[in-house]
Structures are given as C-alpha cells and as structure tokens.
Amino acid sequence: MKIFISQLFDKERLITRLIASAGYSAILFVLLIFYFLISEGLPALGEVSLHSLLGTRWYPIEEYYGLLPLISGSLMVTLGATAIAMPIGIGTAVFIAEVAPRWAREILKPLVEVLGGLPSVVLGLIGFLILSPALRVNLNLATGLTAFTGSLLLAAISIPTIISVAEDALDSVPRSYRDAALALGATEWQTIWRVTLPAARSGVLTAGMLGVGRAIGETMTVMMVTGNAPVLANSLRMLFMPARTMTATIAAEMGEVARGSVHYHVLFLIGIGLFMISLVVNVTASAVVFRQRKRSERILS
C-alpha cells in the first residue's frame, strides 16, 4: 500500500512537471523566435551602414537597402486601414452589444466570425480581380493597385478583431451604470454615448490597437493588391498610389536570397522591426486591459 501511494505521487509529480513545462514553453517560443530573428537580422547592421538603411531607395539587387519606403508604405496602408476599421468596428460592436435585437445579434456574431476566418489569399483574390479595377475606374486612378486598396482589405481583416475585443469591453461595463443613467432620464443613445462608451474607453482603445497590430502584420492580401512599388510615402496623397509594405517585401524576396547574404540579413532585420512593433502594440494593449481590470476591481470592492 505504501509503495502504491509513493508510485502515485511520483506519477503525479511527473505529470505536474510536464504540464508546467508546457506552460513555460510559451516563453521559450517567444525567446526562440526573438533569438532567431536577432541572430539572423542583427548582422545586417554591421554590413549595411545606418545611413543607407535610412535611405529612400529599396533595390536590393543593386545593394540599395533604404528601409524608409517600406516603413512608410506599411504605415500608410495601416493608417488607412485603421481610419476605416475603427469607426466601423467600434460602431458594429456598439450595435451588437447595446442596440441590436436578439435575432440580429444571432446573425451578426457568426457572420463576423466568418469574416475573421476568411483566408487572406481569398480576400486578396477578390481585391485583385474585383476591388482594384473598380477603384481605378470609380476614383479615376492611374492604377487600382494602391495603398488604399490594401487599406480597404486590411480594414476587413482587422474589423473582426476590433469588434470582438470592443464588444467584450462594452459587455464588462456593469449593468448598474446603464441603469443609473437611464433612471436619471437619459435616452439609451445618451447612455451609450456618455456612459457606456466612456466607461469601456480603455477596452475600446485596446481593440483599436489590436486591430492596428493585425493590419500591420498582414501579408498576402497586401502583396496581391498594393502594387509593391517601393515609393517613399511622404504625403497623404500617396494613399492612392502604389506602396510596398514590410511584410510583402519579406514574402516576395525571402525565397530568392542565399542564406547568409546581406539581403537575407536585411530581410530578417525587417522581421525584427515587425516583431518589435507587435511586441509594443500587444504589451501596451494588455497593460491597458490589466489596469482597467484593477480599477474596476477597486471600484467594485
């Protein structure tokens, strides 16, 4: 009997250890990814001068490694996407959480999930075959393959993220807030606008940030519709011109480069940049959520 129990405990300990290491593995993977990006990307800083990395021409086969066109391209496309996705995403979240009748909610939620699940190549295909020619004709552009076309599709990709996070934030606003506002004679609209939304402010902000994070990291759709011209985007007008993003550059060029070449290192350097951006966005977003939770706990206690 004694032996049996000790065996039991050994098994228990083994399993506990296994499960704990699975838990730690997430940290391991992040470190591993970071390590690989660093080890393959940092040599670029030794091989290419900072001056040329900050140049305005990206043409790696002739050793022009100016990153500014790519960075500005990514920013331009993301900015456009955010400007479109934020109002629509948050508006839809408010509609689902506060206004919609039950039946509408039952239809809307799965549809938004469907949008979240649409593979990016499928969106790219539609963008390339239908959206871009339509934009060229209707907006009278020189070409339909522009940053704006990318923005529209990226908005579609980031909207589900924004909706689900913002909806969670709105749901977590205590019922009593709304009741109090309504009891004081506010209309439902005023309650949403003056009470619920401000109370969920940080969560809604998080939603927007995660949406931005989603947009800046998207690759295939952007590569298929933005024309990929490495032009320095220095004015808002450039939104309606072709652009080349950081992600599309990696996807388009990584296959070609020999391992260990300067070009290879620079592409990993761009990867480090993307990693850092997502790090900042996500850490900030989670910090906001964390603070908000603390505050609401304080209020409720």
Binding site: T56, R57, Y59, E62, Y64, P69, F128, L129, P133, R136, A142, T143, G144, L145, M223, M224, G227, N228, A229, P230, V231, L232, M241, P242, R244, A252
Partner: peptide, 28 residues
Amino acid sequence: DKTLFSTDTLLLPSSEGIIVEVRDNPNA
C-alpha cells in the same frame, strides 16, 4: 551604367499579375 527603375514602378510578384493589370488598365 547605374540607371535604375523609377521608384514608382509597380513590382508585381508574377508574370500573370502583369498581364492582368495591362489587360485591364489603359495606362499600363
């Protein structure tokens, strides 16, 4: 000779992309 492509040249990932855009766009 160090002439380069104009930076606003669209770099399409494939030959077919070029055909499609030329087919549809009178400016191309």
